[in-house]
Design a protein around this nucleic acid. Structure first.
Lengths: 117, 117
DNA sequence: TCAAGTGTAGAGTGAACGCTAGACAGGAAA
DNA sequence: TTTCCTGTCTAGCGTTCACTCTACACTTGA
């Protein structure tokens, strides 16, 4: 996984406990066994599938894209966009990479304008 | 895979034959068995791993990003970019989606300028 | 003291992925 | 006719993925 950030499991455990949700309850809500949940939270298992990560994001009220990133996954809708316009989107992403958050925000607004018209 | 475009296998077979490269030769160059190559080209097997797709792109002199898209894969460097900046890149891609090729090109130039400074 | 709740250990599972081996058929060249 | 080339068929194999089941130990409260 090689993530520089906080690990997925550690993060969701912390957030779950902050919300005082039991492991078994959480597991039930997202539709997995408590054992599995436990191992995932201790980063002993790799994170679950996209839909389950999304469920977790909803329960913990955090950004699904961010959580998916922690899970080492690319949101499938983004994957689809790239597959539909590989050349353009690859170019866009590679040049956008390394830009500051402000520049990126500005760029998105720019895109929004072009779209809106 | 659900690709509306030409299938990966059909495409590389056509391009390979156009370049008069034998199946066995091709297979050897990218480091797989002829059997496997054959099945991939007839879309009986799913496309190979990213590095092999890249080798194929190089041999057939076609765009790796495009070929990877046909293979139903997201280039790993793009996946990394998204994972590093999930919120910003998700927003950018989603708003960029649906823009015309020209608008996209303009947007990339825009990004390039911001970066260059 | 014991019952119910917490999380955890160890082992295993079914399906999918990525790929190979060996045999073989059809055509061209010698 | 034999030899060599082309691609293809059937069968299977090792690995990874995304999980589960049973059993257990610890804490808390009645």
């Amino acid at each position: 996984m090689t993530s520089g950030r906080e690990k997925f499991g550690a993060f969701i455990r912390r957030e779950r406990e902050a919300r005082e949700i039991g492991l078994r309850e959480m597991a039930k809500k997202i539709g997995v066994s408590p054992t599995y949940m436990s191992k995932v939270e201790r980063d002993e298992f790799t994170p679950p599938t996209e839909d389950k990560v999304r469920s977790i994001a909803q329960i913990l009220e955090c950004d699904p894209d961010e959580l998916l990133a922690m899970a080492g996954r690319v949101p499938s809708d983004l994957a689809d966009i790239i597959k539909r316009h590989p050349v353009e989107m690859s170019a866009l992403l590679r040049t956008a990479n390394g830009l500051s958050a402000e520049d990126l925000a500005r760029l998105s607004r720019e895109a929004g304008k072009a779209k809106g018209k």
